[in-house]
């Protein structure tokens, strides 16, 4: 296992996990989410080919209510 930071929390994931794997892990279909790895946006078409490494910071963001 490697450890990444997912939405601010430490998370163990199998080595070789892609961004798509992480989205599946947390139960997001990814369609309505923006993903950043180490502050860089990972576009939907690249999510299955961007792989995570020890210490990577992953943010998964959605739209919530706001004024």
């Amino acid at each position: 296992m490697i450890t990444i930071e997912l939405n601010g929390c430490k998370q163990g994931v199998p080595p070789g996990s892609s961004v798509s794997d992480i989205l599946a892990l947390i139960g997001s279909n990814g369609k309505n989410a923006a993903v950043l790895v180490n502050e860089k946006i990972v576009r939907p078409e690249n999510r299955s080919t961007v792989f995570l490494h020890e210490g990577d910071r992953v943010e998964v963001l959605v739209f919530a209510g706001g004024g």
């Binding site: 939405n7 139960g27 997001s28 998964v60 963001l61 959605v62 739209f63 919530a64 209510g65 706001g66």
Partner: peptide, 8 residues
């Protein structure tokens, strides 16, 4: 709308 972290 506002951006927020995904929360299962």
């Amino acid at each position: 709308v506002a951006l927020r972290r995904f929360n299962r």
